[in-house]
Lab assay of single mutants.
Amino acid sequence: TFTSYQLEELEKVFQKTHYPDVYAREQLAMRTDLTEARVQVWFQNRRA
């Protein structure tokens, strides 16, 4: 599960791009204290 802060950050990036590159995902992962893999999976699920 994600915190409301994490979801907010993820959604913010999703609004800009549905396909963030690895750099964007790593920045987001650091900001949200998630792994890059978790961020990647979240985007895959969000796009589905």
Rank of each mutant, 00 (worst) to 15 (best):
R38V: 11
P20K: 05
T17E: 07
E8H: 10
H18D: 06
E26L: 13
V13Y: 08
E36Y: 07
E36Q: 07
Y23W: 12
Q40S: 14
L10C: 05
K12V: 05
T1G: 13
F2A: 02
Q15T: 07
E36R: 05
V22C: 09
E9M: 11
L7W: 08
L10A: 01
A29Y: 04
E36C: 05
A29C: 08
E11K: 02
F43E: 02
L7F: 04
M30L: 12
R38G: 08
V41H: 13
P20T: 00
A37W: 13
E11T: 03
R46F: 02
R38F: 11
R46V: 03
D21Y: 02
R46M: 07
Q27K: 10
A24K: 05
R46Q: 05
Q6A: 05
L28E: 00
Q15D: 09
S4M: 12
T32K: 01
S4P: 15
T32R: 00
Y5W: 12
R38Q: 15
M30P: 00
M30C: 07
A48P: 04
A48H: 12
T17L: 06
T17H: 07
E26F: 13
T35R: 03
Q40C: 10
T1I: 12
V13S: 06
R38A: 15
L34H: 01
Y23D: 08
Q27L: 11
L34Y: 01
T17R: 03
L28R: 14
T17D: 08
F2G: 02
Q44D: 09
Y23K: 14
T3A: 06
M30S: 12
A37M: 13
V41C: 08
Y5C: 06
A37S: 11
R31H: 05
R31P: 00
F43C: 00
T17C: 11
E36K: 05
D21H: 05
R31G: 04
K12D: 04
T3Y: 05
Y19A: 04
V13R: 01
D21M: 02
A29Q: 06
T1L: 13
Q27N: 05
Q40D: 15
R38W: 12
A29L: 05
T3R: 04
T35E: 07
E26P: 02
T17K: 04
L28M: 03
Q44A: 13
S4F: 10
V39P: 00
E9T: 04
W42R: 00
Y5G: 05
V41A: 15
E26T: 13
F43H: 00
A48M: 13
V39R: 00
E26S: 10
V41D: 12
D33K: 10
Y19I: 04
N45W: 06
T3M: 05
Q15S: 12
E9V: 06
M30K: 14
E36V: 14
H18N: 11
W42L: 01
D33Q: 13
R31Y: 05
S4C: 09
Q27Y: 08
R46K: 10
E11N: 06
V13K: 03
R46I: 02
V22L: 15
L28Y: 00
H18G: 03
T17V: 06
F2I: 08
T1Q: 13
W42C: 00
D33F: 10
D33V: 05
A48Q: 10
E8D: 14
F14L: 02
V39T: 02
Q27E: 14
L34N: 02
A29M: 12
V39A: 00
E26Y: 13
